[in-house]
Design a binder for these strands. Structure first.
Lengths: 180, 180
DNA sequence: AATCTCATGTAAGCTGTTACATGATTTA
DNA sequence: TAAATCATGTAACAGCTTACATGAGATT
């Protein structure tokens, strides 16, 4: 059974062939704003995907000790990806350390809690600014059927998420007053 | 080093002593709306927390083959929890299968994608309704310093999150039109 | 000469899920 | 008497992170 990571890789390869190194570079920052993977994870998964005949590769020489492998989707891979896309996602429980800390925040000094939230807020505002720059680089929204639709729709989710997060941080900071 | 799960358990025990079974019942549905754990995870973690002297227990007899153990925070445990609360959360990458699917949705039939999102929307609306009932059960917002503040603040986050999610689902459905 | 980028992989460890295993007391 | 609840644990596996390991070619 192909893992979600496997489908994440297939989703990237569906847009064009890449080396493992290249995939790792792309997936270091979240693909679709909500999925990351490290290079070691990717190389082992590529071997599994190949064993399942969902991808294949061509070799080119250099640089480095091993040959360079350029991976691409097989027809089976494309079909598997298309089928997976519309299957309901298996819901794994949300885990959020900041919210958990908030649950126990009543034990701590308000000033320290406020500082932590101010810090988090800054991060969210930074990401939001980045996402807004990303959004500005889209002219008109891409149509469904265009790969760009995926980028656009996931960016929208990222924007909405960061706004929700930033709003909540601001609310928390307001609750904590200006003492401390 | 105590894991986040460990602190999640400490956060629950900070509100009163409990058995492992009892903890498992509480943590089956997300504590703070954003942290769950299964009973097998909890029992092994309780042993680690005890070895680190962050909790201790009293035994009572029955029911079952082993004695019942009632766990509670030690002073060290309370201190460790208080310190942890205001440390910046280590950011683990967001992973969201639905958003990843969206990234590859351009390959699939719009009608099937729309059905999936309608399904997800229904789940979010259900949770939202539940959270709103939870919110109604609070009279006036608890003050910081009261354990109830943790419940209230995390519920606020849950509400905001579900609204963001539901909004995005609705936007996606609108993008997909009403064709089949 | 040193460092950075490209390029591949393996291994150890931690976290979390699912399944296995036992058994007394209470309720239907 | 059958099933649900209370109560404890272990084991196997899957997924992710971090560290280990190598080395050519290009740049500074």
């Amino acid at each position: 059974m192909t893992s979600t990571l496997g489908f994440a890789i297939l989703a990237v390869l569906a847009r064009g062939p890449r080396t493992g190194y290249d995939l790792a570079a792309v997936m270091r920052r979240p693909v679709s704003y909500f999925w990351t993977a490290g290079h070691s994870q990717i190389h082992t998964e590529l071997q599994k995907l190949r064993a399942a005949r969902l991808i294949d590769y061509e070799t080119e020489h250099g640089p480095g000790p091993q040959d360079k492998k350029i991976y691409r989707l097989t027809d089976d891979g494309r079909e598997a990806l298309r089928d997976w896309v519309t299957e309901p996602p298996r819901e794994r429980p949300e885990r959020d350390e900041l919210v958990l800390k908030t649950y126990a925040a009543w034990l701590a000094e308000p000033g320290l809690v406020r500082r932590m939230f101010a810090d988090q807020l800054a991060r969210h505002e930074e990401r939001l600014a980045q996402y807004e720059r990303d959004a500005a680089s889209f002219g008109s929204p891409p149509a469904f059927g265009d790969p760009g639709f995926g980028n656009y729709a996931t960016l929208r989710c990222g924007l909405s998420y960061e706004r929700h997060r930033a709003d909540w941080c601001r609310w928390m900071i307001a609750q904590l007053g200006d003492g401390g």
